[in-house]
Amino acid sequence: MTRYQTTLSLMFAASLSYPASARDYIDIVGSSTVYPFATVVAEQFGRTTPFKTPKIESTGSGGGFKLFCAGIGVQYPDIANASRQIKTSEIDNCRARGVDDIVEIKIGYDGIVIANSKQRSQIRLTLREIFLALAKQVPDPQGSQTLVANPYRSWREINDALPDSRIEVLGPPPTSGTRDAFVELAMEGGCKSYPWIKAMKDIDGKRYKSTCHTLREDGAFVEAGENDNLIVQKLEKNPRALGIFGFSFLDQNSDRIQGSSINGVEPTFEAIADGSYPISRPLFFYVKKAHVGKVPGIAEYLQEFTSEKAWGDDGYLSGKGLIPMPEGERRKFAEYARNLIPLSQ
């Protein structure tokens, strides 16, 4: 019996003392929007340096921050990718666990496009029309300052210049960062073009938010899942429908689908880069300063990511659909990366 007990306790001890000491690869978590760019850099980094290729988990921005802020030590990630800026509550959460110095690096921009199949003509939309087509409640079409349940069935009912086809938009589910950004930039953008709704923001912030951020649920907006490729394929099958997804998918499928112009601006690389295209958002990653030097290769990875050959105008990331920042901004964040300048307190 004692022999069994010894074996058992030995097994237990072995599993308890599992070497959590060394990790020889960089551990990255976070946004699925940044994932396609970070992976390219990681692969390049793994090939051209003696370090191992970093491991990149696609957990979503929020999930990434949760893991990232769990503590200091090799069992916690070194870098968190995000398709939005870190929230104050998340920074507090980090601090509570001893993660004090976080370096924020902006890497570029991503545009969100509304596209349809090439079999139909291109559609010209404004933010207000997008809001009217997709919001659950819209201002009364009669002109009074009240909200009514969205009565619009066809695009023509919103604007005579739009095609007379049923409103049918395929978009990402609420868990997606693309959805967050779309709602914040496009829906809210169109929503606050009504002065009386905009005025609501200061009086009743909650009501303002629910008015502007709630998408209709009567079948005109279809949640098509996280897979943007699927949306592209569905657009081909159903030429009447519009789809919402990231710019890189439009870029890769430009022979099959076309982006709608928003407020008169076409979703092109240049228009997103100079900020004239209204639905674009910055992308970031955050580095745990305490891990630099502890986990091999972090400084070199930052150097690779912030080099001109990666995120520059002709860099390999732009080939994958990342919209580069203006040169001044690039220089500023490369500086942050080199000197590891943390977020101010």
Partner: peptide, 17 residues
Amino acid sequence: IGMVAFVADIPQNLSDP
């Protein structure tokens, strides 16, 4: 448990990502 990840290197042992 973090196995939905980009892993370019081929794992060599049980504790490699």
